[in-house]
Every structure is written in C-alpha cells, then in structure tokens.
Amino acid sequence: MAHASHDQEIYFVPQPSHWPIVGTIGLFLMAGGSSIGLNGISMGYYASLLGFAILVVMLFGWFGKVIAENLAGSYNAQVDRTFRWGMSWFIFSEVMFFAAFFGALFYARNMTIPWLAGAGSKSIMTHLLLWPHFEAAWPTNGPAALGGQFGTVNAWELPAINTAILLTSSWTVTMAHHAVRAGHQARTSLWLALTILLGASFLVLQADEYRHAYEHLNLTLGSGIYGSTFYMLTGFHGAHVTLGTIMLTVMLFRSLKGHFRPERHFAFEATSWYWHFVDVVWLGLFIFVYIL
C-alpha cells in the first residue's frame, strides 16, 4: 500500500476499532460501580476499580495503535493538524471545568459571605433574623461554623515552594522541547525525567500539605465553604498534575525508545501543552486560594 504521507491530496481514515467500546465499558463500570458504592454497597467500588483498569488498558491499546500508525508513516500533515485542534479544544474544555469551581469561589467570597453578614440593604434581614452573629471574613466556614475552628495553610510555606517547583517544571519541559527539536534524544530524556521528578515532588508535598491540614489545622472538606472550595480546587488540580505526570512518564519512555523526530513529535507537544495548562491553573490557585 502506498504511504504518501505528506501529500495533501491523500486522506487517512482509520479502520474499525474495538478500543472505544472497551473504553465505554470501562467508563460505564466506573460510573455504575461508584454509584452503587456511594449507595453503601462496597462491591460497587470494586466494579469501579475494574472499570478504571479497563480504561487504562484501553488507553494503552488505543494510544499504542496511534503510535504504531504514526511510526508506520500513515499520518500526514492534515492528521497532525487534527490532533492539534483536538488537544487544544480538549484543554479548553478543562479550562471551563476549572472555571466552574473558580466561579464558585469568587461568588462565595464576593457575594454570599457579605450577604450572610448583612452587607447592603437587601441582605440586612438575612443577617439580623437568621445569622445575627456572623461577620464577613475569609477564610470562613460559614455562620454555623461547620466543621469547627480551623487554620489555613500559609501561602509562603509549602504552597510557595510548590509554585516554584511547578514553574521550574514548566521551564524544564520547555527545555525538553528544545532538545527534541534539536534532535537530542538523551537530553530530551534528561529534561523530561527532571520534569517528572518535579511533578512527583509537587504531588508529594501537596499530599503532605493535605495530611497536615487534616491532622493539625482541622481544615477538612467539611470546613464550610472555605474547606469546600479549597479542597475541590486543589484536589482537581492535583488530579490533573497526576495525570500530567503519567503522561510525561509515557513520553519519557517513548523518548528513550527514540520515537520523536525533530519535526514530528506531537504527542510530546500535547503533553507539554497540558503541563503548561496545569501550571497556569496552579498560578490561579496560588493567587486566589492561597494568597488572597
């Protein structure tokens, strides 16, 4: 079969694939299993785990196939552009997902809390009749002080270090990119390994921060709106860092196998976009969750 891969006039159309249905079954088991688990039947969580395992197998299988196709030279510039658009819009959807939680944070801080404390003529009765002892403050666990007294994480301790770590990792991943473009396989792998190391240390520190917050600060998911927004934002961010680190690790292995060419290495680029995105979200978090 002809492989005129750089010819504009030729389309690539993949053959039927069983990976999507495998992925669907994985997602189905995860969703259904978690639902059953949340309803108090712990069996459900096992189904959910099984679903996750299936999803992971699917990802390996699917991406493995894409990599094989790519290495076989089936892809042309059009496919490459398609992947770029696909990844960009995927990241945009992730941005909007975080936007929902940032929105919740801003709303709570700038609207709800002042209202509960009676700011403005419209909420004075809310304050007087329902929550007479509540004063506007941030952080807060609300007028009923849910979860009891709690402390907050000092922005200039661990979070500042974590910020430095992530910023550095953005730089290292860019260095890795330069190396790919220069065709330096060993250097690429080295910078990638460094980035992974930084990502992993971020995660370790973040986990330690959570442990500290739960054990010593009494800052929990149940600590009113502060605890809710704090853990949801940092938690989802942490999940994304985890995913990003896994992606980087895969890229490291692929780099070691010599998959990347100076002119063709989109998987690597996509991963680095994702990593920068995770980084930018962290900056938002650092400013709006920790500092302000």
């Binding site: 949340l38 929902a100 939680f101 919740a104 709303y107 709570a108 609207m111 709800t112 809390i113 209202w115 509960l116 329902l130 929550w131 807060t140 666990n141 609300g142 007028p143 009923a144 849910l146 979860g147 929990t220 998911l221 149940g222 009113g224 709106i225 502060y226 605890g227 809710s228 927004t229 853990y231 949801m232």
Partner: peptide, 22 residues
C-alpha cells in the same frame, strides 16, 4: 453536578448557607 455530589456525600457546603454557601 460534581459540587452536588460533594455536598451530598462528602460534607462540603457549596450550596448550604450554614457553611457559607448558597
């Protein structure tokens, strides 16, 4: 809907005034 899930099962108070939510 994730916030709903958290409010129901994990004790957050996004939508509960007592905890400073709305």
């Amino acid at each position: 809907v994730t916030m709903l899930l958290m409010d129901k099962y994990f004790g957050t108070s996004f939508f509960n005034a007592a905890g400073g939510g709305d």
